[in-house]
Write a protein that binds this DNA or RNA. Sequence first.
RNA 1: GCCCCUCUAGCUCAGUUGGUUAGAGCAACGGACUCUUAAUCCGCAGGUCCUCGGUUCGAAUCCGAGGGGGGGCACCA
Length: 517
Amino acid sequence: MTQEHATSDDAPTGNHDASASTDDGTNLSVYRERRLAEVQHLRDRGVNPYPYRFDRSHTLGELRASHGNLAAGSETTDTVAVCGRVMLKRDQGKLIFITIRDRSDEIQLFVSKAVVGDAEFDAINAFDMGDWVGARGLVMTTRKGELSVKVSEVQLLAKSLRPMPDKWHGLADVDTRFRQRYADLIVNHDARRTFEIRHAVIASVRRTLGARGYVEVETPVLHAEAGGAHARPFVTHHNALDLQLYLRIALELHLKRLIVGGMERVFEIGRVFRNEGISPRHNPEFTMLESYEAFADYDDIMQLTQDIIVNAARDALGTTTIDIGGAPYDLTTPWPRKRMIDLASEKVGRELHPSQSVDSVRKVASDNGVKWEPHWGSGRIIEEIFAEKAEAELLTPTFVTCHPVEISPLARVHRDDPHLTERFELFVQARELANGFSELNDPVEQRARFEAEQRAKEAGDATAGTVDEDYLRALEFGLPPTGGLGVGIDRLTMLIAGVSSIREVILFPTLRPEADE
RNA sequence: GCCCCUCUAGCUCAGUUGGUUAGAGCAACGGACUCUUAAUCCGCAGGUCCUCGGUUCGAAUCCGAGGGGGGGCACCA
């Protein structure tokens, strides 16, 4: 019967039928044709399969909150209107149980043929899993105590044409999960949970900074020069200006211009782009928090960093204890601070310092199996020794501090040691999670650092920076003492959600385009 | 970019040392059933075994090339 509709009533849906049936003839296309026929069947009966709106009296979560304590076998006189997606259907003959879900909860619809009548019962029975429906009826519980809506009327809100993934096993294929995130979100609770946590983390960060008087700003994504970090940029082009532009690799230089302008405390949560490899910890576009606070130094910012992360965990999970390497760890524990040169020195059994000659540091590196490049200075080699020998052991939160000047072109020289900077990086699970420092605000020194970067770039370091003249001009107007911070929001979410791939916390991670079509 | 692993029905997965017509569960479809909970029961249908090429009497299975994905390395924080 419905098949006849599919073949005879295809004028308005001819395109769908053609694409669904001509070339493949697979189970999937048969399935879609059947549901398309059902759509046409509804239209023939004057039912809009895609109505415009639905008046909902309660979300499913609200309904459970208000009636969750009903005793088994109760019938109330409370009329509600609820809506959601059909997730399960249990046809009992003259009784149908339909589990619908909205974003807050799941509730069972109790459909009795004796209540709704034969015609309506058949219409409800034609619903498929995945359909969006709205129902009106009385709140009740079944004999076994399941909170239900005894429906008097159910309305289709949107017809689903595709089969749902396995109702028990969900969708496991990671490729499909990332490409078809909608399907992942429909069937995988963990996926929904992860993105709820992501939202809670970001909202918490905004609250923490807002409570400290920070102002949220937005700065350009298109940069004439990609500065503020060491990374290869994406290149793009503006037609009207006939101008080569770069997608930003950091937020830093614009935000500090705002501190020059007197905004005192600013932050931005924004997308940055780095044209580099993809890994479980790297996506080409990712979300950075950067914040800058006038009159603060890196010591203040380390405290801020821990506050932000502790609050984020508390707000997202309701606890500050998370799992690190299989063991519980309370984030409120004071996080140790260790100088990079000390961590590196410990591992090689010799005092290392960027004031030492390049030759002597090279020898230490080579003796310990650490490779170095000819254009690296002592400081850069020490960083490499740290990265190769010490970094992997930094599982619980640790502030690595006082990086060599050579690798920190935007950080201020340490007040007690001219070869080091007032900088820190936070490592958790051997991954960098945050980076901050007392900001360099001497325009003369900043120019010298930029020029050193420029020379490194010309010497072949593709990730080195260039001289940003406008930023130098800003500094000449006067940047107050400032403490700055950058936090990888994706990695922070990974930590709090307890997932191991960055793709799990990015709704639509970068993938190669799908073939064919 | 390099190395390893992986790809079978809409989904989740079997598929032996290469051997007839590639199987199961769920979903779908037909039927039974008024308190189910992944409902159950009966019946039926569904396949470009990622693609191309090769070896073989015979390939989902072995070989080569290519594609997607995952992990590692490199790059990079």
